[in-house]
Design a protein around this nucleic acid. Sequence first.
DNA 1: TGCTTGGTTGAATGTTCAATCAACTCGGCT
DNA 2: AGCCGAGTTGATTGAACATTCAACCAAGCA
Lengths: 202, 202
Amino acid sequence: MNAADTRSRILMTAMELFWEKGYLSTSVSDILSRSQVHSGSLYHFFPGKQDVLVGVLELYRDGIDEMLLAPNWEGVDDPIERIFALLAGYRTHLIVTDCTYGCPIGSLALEIHEPDPVVRDLMAANFTNWSAAIAGCFDAAADRLPPGTDRRALGEFVLTVMEGAVMQARTYRDIGYFDRNIAVLRDYITTLMAAEKSGNFA
Amino acid sequence: MNAADTRSRILMTAMELFWEKGYLSTSVSDILSRSQVHSGSLYHFFPGKQDVLVGVLELYRDGIDEMLLAPNWEGVDDPIERIFALLAGYRTHLIVTDCTYGCPIGSLALEIHEPDPVVRDLMAANFTNWSAAIAGCFDAAADRLPPGTDRRALGEFVLTVMEGAVMQARTYRDIGYFDRNIAVLRDYITTLMAAEKSGNFA
DNA sequence: TGCTTGGTTGAATGTTCAATCAACTCGGCT
DNA sequence: AGCCGAGTTGATTGAACATTCAACCAAGCA
């Protein structure tokens, strides 16, 4: 096993564990035992536990297209449907985990109350990339929306709804809370597009 | 100092600390030193740290009317404006804490990945009371909404938007993220009421 | 006065944690 | 062959942690 293997096995394992148990509840020993790496090796690549977190957040940031968007958008061309296809991906995650897991970034954001600036910037960058991708969908469908629509705000709003919907579904262990939230969002977006069509805002 | 004093001082202090630092990052020693209580006294009233959390969550649950709703709704009669008055209360919290603090229940919900059923039920009860209060506002304004509107779902949606908006404002340390989210929510609710008025859904 | 009971004290316990480090391996280089 | 340094090993360290407990206190009552 070469160096790249060890480093990336640590990061992959930490990614899993932070997602399953959260950052604070994951001990360095947890990472070591699951990844079959010894403590000296981990501390050879990372100055400390927080630097492992930084590596994981960079992985999420750099992998949003391939890991998140591409899989969910395969075969979906309509930009508005892409938004709901992405949300459906989160729904699937909830289903296969019996509504126990949530958005890894959102969980980290609320779990770490006094984040290091490096960590906070990376969480923010992850949010920005996510909502910018959604805003891009709205841009692509701009002609179906009322003129002057704040599409950046709309992208942030979809992120908000995803995070809140996942939070509730997880707390209640009930997918119904997710579905009702997404249904309301769909009603809003539908209404927006209907308003443009009927010229209410023209 | 009598027994009730000690117990309630522990709970008040724990409430503060869980809000400031989160549950996991708050040690029993933190609670002891700030509340000026000795460990034996704490363990006289609470079997363990988690039971302190249960006590805090019960305090939130039982105090939602007096501690949260009443202060924000004073002098606000219109049910729709009450919704935004409550959200404005969260905005004030963000402002006075330089966008560092968030909804205590939401933070706990994402921080504790494998909650005890007792804890989970209490978090859910807090969410239910919150969104039911909002749903009550929508009920009071039912004649301004399209017939058949799912007002329970709308209450859960407002909770979702609050949680997501607070999460983003806190992560970015920028109130703009909160404001844009609430503006989109207001646009949606306004649109809903305009639709009823113009009879688009009749 | 002496006993009971609810509450208090704070040192001590055992565990878990992140982090350290001296000793080692081994491929690549001169 | 001899050396170098990136990478590995795992026992060890010291701090922080939640929890325990034997001794203590004081109010109320017999």
